[in-house]
Amino acid sequence: MSQISTTRISKELLKFQSTSTLNLVQPTDSLTLFYVDLKVEGNEAVYPPDDIYRLRFIIHPEYPFKPPQVQFITTDQHTTKPYKIPMHPHIYSNGHICLNILYDGWTPANTLHTVALSVQSMLSGNSVNARPEGDKSYCSSAPLNPLHSKWVFDDDKV
């Protein structure tokens, strides 16, 4: 990891302390893997107030000039209980999120905090309790890393 990434991430992590609905979890001492436990408030119709969703960030060595790998997860070696993948017309059941700032629209001025906030606002503004079209076929053929998928961003309303 480059000098820039380390200085930047250590500064970025401090920002999470100010937001109560975003809970940063740092499972290891390394600066390449983080979880953000995310609560959605004020949208009980789709997301029950007690539900917590877990967002996983894997940092690229050239961060912030390369985007981090961001997705929702249910379980992995660092979790103790299974999480749910939130229902959203842009979130696939394997946890991949169709959001342009995570892929082609990434700019180095984005931070982990702003990404988490955008995902959160994407959820709180949503009223459709459904998966995207073609969810099954995408999940059956999707690469593990969502950055390797070819994304088409055609809907900027939701």
């Binding site: 082609d104 700019t107 180095p108 001025a109 702003t114």
Partner: peptide, 12 residues
């Protein structure tokens, strides 16, 4: 590299 002809200000 991302193939944008018009380049945005980095601020999202």
């Amino acid at each position: 590299e991302q193939g944008n002809l018009l380049i945005n200000c980095p601020e999202p």
